[in-house]
């Protein structure tokens, strides 16, 4: 008991009693912002991964017989197969296209001028001259359209990266707000316990001795508040992971992967060390200013 005693009675400090709750709230928000940003980035990556590296060529068949349309489709596919960067070309004939449009046009599409489709796979990172492909295909099938999925996917991916950065920025701002709250609480405690710190200084205590007592106390508050906030956020994320559905769910390992759980588990310690070093910095700076 004798050695564990704190000379500054911070544990009985009414001003500091709310601090763990405030830290818990801040860490709850920081965990959600960080996890949200990472889940979004990962989900968009999974969602668009299947579309990147592909393009689709639409071959209109108006005024052609089926045989003619198939013949021209095969020629266009051969042209594409010879194009550098193209790894695979799959021709979707009339029957396959009819199945694709059946939900909208019904089963009986006889007499309708259904286009032929070419599903083209590209090498990763290949530089494809779309204009040249379009020109070559149109010499075979006038009016052919080339749809590049890469550009669409890249747009979504760029947007998701910005949202990811915004999420991290929000987490950072929340942690800064948490640090400012700790600074304010520490200064208030210093004012409340001014008489005690003065006596300690008068009997030869270094400022670092006084700071250490604040550090220990605030570290404990940061750990408790951080653990509570992280636990609440983890419960929420686990519930979302269990109940959420649709394309935003990551295809491998669920909504929250293991590595993200590990990252989330570090937040109580991040909070505790943030609290500790903020308190130390505040005490040393405030005492130095007193002169």
């Amino acid at each position: 008991m004798f050695d564990r005693h704190q000379e500054i009675p911070l544990a009985h400090d009414r001003a500091g009693r709310l601090l763990p709750w405030i830290i818990a709230l801040m860490i709850f928000l920081a965990v959600l912002a960080t996890a949200g940003a990472m889940i979004l980035l990962r989900s968009v990556g999974n969602l668009t991964g299947g579309l990147s590296g592909t393009m689709t060529v639409h071959l209109p068949t108006g005024g052609m017989s089926d045989a003619e349309a198939d013949k021209r489709s095969a020629r266009a596919a051969n042209v594409l197969r010879r194009t550098p960067g193209v790894t695979r070309v799959r021709v979707l004939g009339r029957d396959r296209v009819a199945k694709l449009v059946a939900p909208w046009l019904g089963e009986d599409t006889r007499g309708l001028p259904l286009p032929r489709l070419l599903d083209v796979s590209l090498e990763r990172g290949a530089s494809i001259n779309l204009g040249e492909i379009r020109r070559q295909v149109r010499t075979i099938v006038p009016g052919a359209a080339v749809v590049d999925h890469q550009r669409f996917v890249q747009g979504i991916f760029d947007l998701s990266q910005w949202v990811f950065l915004c999420g991290l920025l929000v987490a950072f701002v929340v942690l800064v707000a948490c640090a400012l709250t700790i600074i304010f609480a520490t200064r208030t405690s210093l004012r409340i316990h001014h008489n005690v710190t003065e006596v300690l200084n008068l009997i030869g205590a270094q400022d670092s001795y006084v700071a250490k007592q604040f550090e220990r106390h605030t570290f404990r508050q940061g750990l408790i508040g951080g653990a509570a906030g992280t636990l609440a956020a983890a419960v929420l994320l686990a519930a979302l992971s269990a109940f959420a559905g649709g394309p935003m769910i990551a295809v491998d390992g669920g909504l929250v992967p293991v590595w993200l759980w590990v990252l989330i588990a570090t937040f109580p310690f991040l909070s505790a060390f943030l609290a500790r070093f903020t308190a130390r910095f505040t005490v040393l700076r405030t005492l130095a200013r007193m002169g």
């Binding site: 200084n201 008068l202 009997i203 030869g204 270094q206 400022d207 130095a288």
Partner: peptide
């Protein structure tokens, strides 16, 4: 300020 505590430890008040 850093010098003061070392001196005060030799002074009883």
């Amino acid at each position: 300020r850093a010098d003061v505590p070392n001196i005060r430890r030799h002074v009883g008040v």
